[in-house]
């Protein structure tokens, strides 16, 4: 499990840190739909027409150090994007992994121990899904992961 996590994180870091420089710079599907109906000048500013993007307002945190997938103060766009991607992957793993670890079931042997109130609604449909992963044979080494 530890090996798999490290390998997976490495791939994610590679994608966000390096491959991201090859990402398309065109507006994504939503942004494209939001711009439909307007005309734009070379700088991307709206010059006429009616479109959803006209109503767009500034992001409340638009001045944050990692805003728009870059790092404030680094002018080299490739480096700035790549480093912000690396930061994002590590941050998402830390926050996501941390939260999931906090809310996980603590006692694999006693599934209903901590939450009797959950059982009536949750258990009939959930137990077939959950129980195979409970098998202690699957992961003796995994306990040390975090």
């Amino acid at each position: 499990m530890k090996k798999f996590l490290i390998a997976g994180l490495f791939v994610a870091l590679l994608l966000a840190g390096v491959v991201s420089r090859f990402a398309s710079g065109s507006p994504d599907g939503l942004d494209y739909a939001a711009r439909e109906g307007c005309t734009f000048d070379a700088d991307g500013d709206i010059t006429g027409g009616t479109c959803m993007a006209q109503q767009e307002q500034e992001h409340q945190l638009g001045d944050s150090p990692l805003a728009d997938y870059g790092i404030k103060g680094i002018d080299n766009e490739t480096l700035s994007t790549g480093l912000s991607g690396v930061a994002g992957v590590l941050l998402t793993f830390a926050i996501g992994g941390g939260l999931f670890w906090l809310i996980r079931r603590r006692t694999p042997g006693q599934p209903s121990a901590g939450s009797p109130s959950d059982s009536p609604a949750g258990s009939p449909s959930d137990s077939p899904a959950g129980s195979p992963s409970d098998s202690p044979s699957g992961s003796p080494a995994d306990e040390k992961v975090a």
């Binding site: 992994g97 999931f100 959950d118 959950g130 409970d134 992961s139 995994d142 992961v145």
Partner: peptide, 11 residues
């Protein structure tokens, strides 16, 4: 999610 999340699924 708590039903599914064990020591292996969380990480």
């Amino acid at each position: 999610a708590r039903v599914d999340l064990d020591d292996r699924l969380a990480p």
